[in-house]
Amino acid sequence: MNGLAPFVAILGRGQGRARSLTRDEAFAAMTEILDGRAAPEAIGALLMLLRMKGETAPEIAGFAAAARAHLSPWTGPRPALDWPSYAAGRTRGQPWFLLSAKLVAQAGFPVLLHGWNSHQTSGSSVRDTLDIPGVARCTWQDAPSYLAAGGIAYVALEDVSPDLMRLLRLRDVLGLRSCINTVLRMLNPAGAQATVQGVFHPSYRELQRDAARMLGQRDLCVLKGGGGEFEHHPSKDISLHGLRDGALWEGATGMAHPGRQRLSEATGRLADVWAGTAQDDFAIAIVVSTAALALDTLGVPNAASAARDLWTRRHYSQAA
């Protein structure tokens, strides 16, 4: 019998009989998939039933735990901060958060970025701009040495796990997003104590927070960010959800920049704004306020002031 049949039956028995998967059931189902024992029809049925029902925190935690167990081992010191980047990118501009991540790394907190951004246009995707802020793309095996050398690295999902990449790309077949997008945000493949996550739909903030707590995450910040990335809109006071030392936590961002602008209206190239040859106060506010939220997640006191100081001194850092 198909290894996923019992789990499909649990989800699809019909009104009054169907139920959500337990964490253990979700772990077992994802293990069946990643071990290659599940038929493609059953994988599609499982993912779409979950989408129709709505995922629960135990399901996401079980899937993420199984996905982590499937990865090749991380071979070096853990990064301080995990920074997933899996937004579609249809409604955002340039990935200013890359400069924020670089500021965090220059503050002495190694940052591991990982992701896939399938719908961003050429020239504005995360991968197209990696070389501009000096964030190295590397393989999963080389990431520990890149972090040790420069404090920041980006690993593409297909390098982290080709199997997870194939699951994510089922969106092209099914025509709909699945819970795999959320699972990947929860992956934290190198086991960092702190992680930052963006969402596009506000309801996912609590879902991801609760799943992270089940997975033993210590420090977490989730916000509705630019295009679904962890990127703060500095002219909005945005609700924050997360964890501090494993306990539930909520906050707000405050407003770091006056006026009303869309994130896509920030001008200039990342390299030029970083170098100071282009001046865009709104773009700088995006970078600094996003870095402040990440630093706060890492436990840095007076994070907003620290982020501003890092921006001012960015060219004098040994890691710059």
Rank of each mutant, 00 (worst) to 15 (best):
K224W: 03
A306W: 09
S85W: 02
V8I: 11
V199K: 15
A105N: 05
A38Y: 02
I10K: 04
A42I: 05
D272F: 12
A252I: 01
G123E: 06
L293K: 14
F63T: 11
F7E: 03
S264T: 11
H119P: 00
N117S: 12
L295D: 07
I286M: 15
R269L: 09
R19E: 01
L50Y: 01
F7W: 12
A28Q: 14
A306C: 15
A194H: 02
V196L: 02
T139Q: 03
L81Y: 06
A29D: 06
L310Q: 13
G216H: 00
S85R: 12
G225S: 07
S118R: 11
R19A: 04
V104H: 13
G54M: 15
L298A: 12
A87S: 03
R313D: 00
P58D: 05
R171D: 14
E32R: 02
P58A: 04
W249E: 13
Y154Q: 09
I238Y: 02
R314P: 11
A303R: 01
L295E: 14
D159A: 10
G36L: 08
R308K: 13
W249F: 07
L167V: 09
A88K: 12
G191P: 08
H233F: 09
Q318P: 13
S124E: 15
S122G: 06
A101Q: 04
F63M: 15
D219S: 13
A39W: 00
A67N: 04
E265M: 09
I43R: 14
K236H: 07
T139A: 14
A194G: 05
P58V: 09
L47R: 02
V155C: 07
